[in-house]
Each structure stands twice: as structure tokens, then as C-alpha cells.
């Protein structure tokens, strides 16, 4: 306990960072977690450059939207981003209510944050379902080794991507190529997927969005525990809501990671 502010933070006798140890270590944990996510996304970037000629375009893969028949590329991930940003706002409002010692306000905003978290998790489950299930017709590996995709909205056509150029084959030629195809791939798993002729695209999708989704799930669990404490008046008695702030740091970090996943997995 120091009465007056010392001149130098490094002269001894004071905490140089002037934050609680809990908050400091939450930050240090987040830095290390950010390094983990960075490594995953950079690995994705490296492999995308390695297979640049056959890598699928995300705008061509994530085209579904609930209750809409047709292609609405990127709209659904845009919505997921909105949900997560919104829940970040409700979290920061919970922290703000805590600064005012307004227990009821913290309960309300924390509740909506948890709702946002569950909405995001549900959205991700929907996204995974459609990614794994794939289209009705799937993709073909043709007799000459080329990889041809199909489109449920334009039946009878084959789409061959090579060096970012799309070739469309239709009519009898497409039917012949399909008949002589070596393999028909539907949906996605860790070994193959119908979106591109490399398993890496599916692998990175499952690993990166899965790892992020698990972070969201952990965040929701942490927020629920904090909410139970707030409801029991634990922090009201303690005199400060620093614990809500710490959970908030983690929750904002999850939002932050999604901003990067959104850009480097879906947009670029």
C-alpha cells in the first residue's frame, strides 16, 4: 500500500505494472494463446501458398444461409461475426455496470453475453453440418486426374478450377466425364473434401474453427460460473467486480481471434 505515487515504477517497492496479478496473468495467458492461434493461421497461409493452384476459394464454399435457397456467399459468417461482436459489447457493458457496483446490471448484461455465446456455438454447429454434409452431387475425380466440382443449383454442369480460373463443362461431355469418373466425393472429412483437391483445406477448417469454437465454449462456461457468483452477490460483498473484468478479457480475446479467422479463412 503506497500512499503517494512513486517516481519510478522500476525503483522497487511498487508493482511496476499497477495491475492485479490475476489480470496480468490473464493477459500473459492471452498472449500465449494468441501465439497458438497465430501459428495455426500462419500454417494455413503457408499451405495455401504451397497449393495455391488447387486451393478452393472460400467464397465458393461457404454459400449457405438458413431458409434461403441459393448462393449467399459469406453472409452467414458475416452474421456470426455480428453475433460475436454484439456479445463482446454486452460483456463490456457488464464490466461497466460492475464499475458502478450495479449488481442487477451485471446480471442482465452477462446473461445476454451467454445468450450470444450459445447463438454463436449454434451457428458454428450449423456451419459444420453443411460443410461435412456437402452438396447433393459432390465432386468428381475424373479419369484424367482432374478435380471437378458440381453445383446443386446448376445440375449437369462440371466446374474445374485450375490456377484460379474456372472452366465449365456441360451437356453430354459433362455426362461422359461423370460416367468415367474415378471417384465421387461428397461433403468433407479429414481425408478428403468436395471443395478442393487437397485434404488440407478441410483439415484446417476443422482444426482452426474447432479450436476457436472450443474457446467460445470455455468462455461460455466461465461466464456462467461468473454469473452464478454475481447472482449470489459474491462480488457485491467483495467490493469490486474485477473477476467479471478478467472473464471479459478472455471473452473479448475470443472475439478478437474470430476477427482474424473471419479475414484469413473466409475473406482472403
Amino acid at each position: 500500500m503506497t500512499a503517494s505515487k512513486p517516481k519510478s515504477a522500476w525503483g522497487g517497492g511498487v508493482s511496476p505494472f499497477n495491475v492485479s496479478w490475476g489480470k496480468m496473468f490473464m493477459w500473459f495467458f492471452l498472449v500465449s494463446d494468441a501465439f497458438t492461434f497465430s501459428s495455426l493461421i500462419i500454417a494455413y497461409g503457408a499451405m495455401r501458398h504451397r497449393f495455391t493452384d488447387i486451393w478452393p476459394l472460400p467464397g465458393d464454399v461457404f454459400t449457405h444461409f438458413p431458409f434461403i435457397h441459393g448462393h449467399v456467399p459469406l453472409a452467414y459468417v458475416g452474421l456470426m461475426t455480428f453475433i460475436l461482436i454484439m456479445s463482446s459489447v454486452t460483456m463490456v457493458l457488464a464490466v461497466e455496470a460492475g464499475h458502478r457496483r450495479h449488481n442487477k446490471g451485471v446480471v442482465t448484461w452477462l446473461f445476454w453475453t451467454i445468450v450470444g455465446g450459445f447463438m454463436f456455438l449454434g451457428s458454428q454447429a450449423w456451419e459444420w453440418y453443411h460443410f461435412i454434409k456437402g452438396s447433393e452431387e459432390g465432386a468428381y475425380i475424373l479419369a484424367d486426374g482432374r478435380f471437378a466440382r458440381t453445383d446443386d443449383l446448376e445440375p449437369g454442369k462440371l466446374f474445374i478450377w485450375k490456377d484460379h480460373q474456372k472452366t465449365i463443362i456441360e451437356g453430354t461431355e459433362a455426362a461422359q466425364l461423370k460416367a468415367s469418373a474415378v471417384k465421387n466425393i461428397k461433403g468433407a472429412n479429414l481425408v478428403e473434401n468436395e471443395y478442393g483437391n487437397t485434404p488440407l483445406f478441410g483439415n484446417f477448417f476443422f482444426f482452426i474453427t474447432g479450436f476457436h469454437g472450443f474457446h467460445v465454449f470455455s468462455g461460455v462456461v466461465i461466464n456462467i460460473i461468473i454469473l452464478i457468483n454475481v447472482l449470489n452477490g459474491v462480488y457485491l460483498r467483495r467490493g469490486h467486480y474485477e473477476q467479471v473484468e478478467k472473464a471479459g478479457l478472455y471473452w473479448h480475446f475470443v472475439d478478437l481471434v474470430w476477427v482474424f479467422v473471419f479475414t484469413f479463412f473466409y475473406l482472403v
Binding site: M1, V14, S15, N18, S20, W21, E96, H99, R100, H240
Partner: peptide, 17 residues
């Protein structure tokens, strides 16, 4: 309003609202 850092110095950190 605020809390203590909880380390060896246990400094008081004021929450600036």
C-alpha cells in the same frame, strides 16, 4: 473504488470509471 494487486506490494489500484 478499486482493488489490491495481490502481489508482494499489494498496491491499491483505483478503478477509473
Amino acid at each position: 473504488h478499486g482493488y489490491y494487486t495481490g502481489d508482494i506490494h499489494n498496491q491499491f489500484v483505483e478503478e477509473h470509471h
